[in-house]
């Protein structure tokens, strides 16, 4: 059981990192949202596996939250927003995919270098999980930095939250309150950002944040 538990957890966490990479280079809006849904599904599988391994049934609730909200409701709503904004066929210009991917690989290496020595005493399952979680967080941040489209930024932010949940469930004994609050924060972020998208659209006919900067007209 010991090695199996470790291997499966490793598989899911590694899969999450891999899907983060897929998010990083995906330039079609529809595809991006589908991949995000996949990200959430893998997360919920990983959390569910942790719940099974750690014998902590409350983690199943977290998994359910992940699969219901993040894998279903949020992607569906985002699809609907895009249809209403008529940007679902858009292709975002992602400059320098190769460079971005290389940067992403460096970030994963960095998080392994940072976490593995720092947690030498911790149990190996938690160690690997935390290292992967940090990679997911950094990749999410990288995505927010490299994208210009508001929806991609929202998705980058939510994949970052997924990384946080992965870290929270990887360590034993994290109380449920944290997970619920994290889930809700994502939901609230989604609602707020969704409303802002419409506002931006109403005002400026675009969700490209560069347009916003032009309107604000800073002293650049």
């Amino acid at each position: 059981m010991g090695t199996l538990a470790f291997d499966v957890a490793h598989l899911f966490a590694g899969g999450l990192v891999l899907i983060s990479f897929m998010l990083l280079y995906q330039d079609r809006m529809t595809g991006l949202i589908n991949i995000f849904a996949l990200h959430a599904v893998v997360l919920s599988l990983s959390v569910a596996w942790q719940a099974y391994v750690q014998h902590s049934p409350h983690l199943f609730l977290t998994a359910a939250i992940a699969i219901i909200f993040k894998a279903t409701i949020i992607p569906l709503s985002l699809q609907r927003i895009m249809v209403r904004l008529r940007i679902h066929r858009d292709i975002e210009v992602v400059g320098g995919v190769g460079v971005t991917m290389l940067l992403g690989i460096c970030l994963v290496a960095l998080s392994l270098v940072v976490i593995l020595p720092a947690t030498a005493a911790a149990d190996p399952l938690a160690r690997e999980d935390v290292a992967f979680a940090l990679s997911v967080v950094l990749l999410g941040l990288l995505m927010m930095v490299t994208r210009r489209n508001a929806i991609s930024q929202v998705i980058g932010f939510m994949s970052l939250e997924n990384g946080l949940i992965l870290a929270a469930t990887g360590a034993k004994g994290m109380p449920l309150v944290v997970e619920i609050s994290v889930a809700f924060s994502v939901l609230i972020a989604f609602i707020v950002i969704g409303i802002f998208l419409f506002r931006i659209r109403e005002r400026f006919d675009t969700v490209d944040v560069q347009e916003l900067d032009r309107v604000r007209g800073g002293g650049r």
């Binding site: 927010m144 930095v145 994208r147 210009r148 930024q153 944040v209 916003l212 900067d213 800073g218």
Partner: peptide, 9 residues
Amino acid sequence: NYLTIQEYL
């Protein structure tokens, strides 16, 4: 004061 949101991020 006048950076884009990406630059802040």
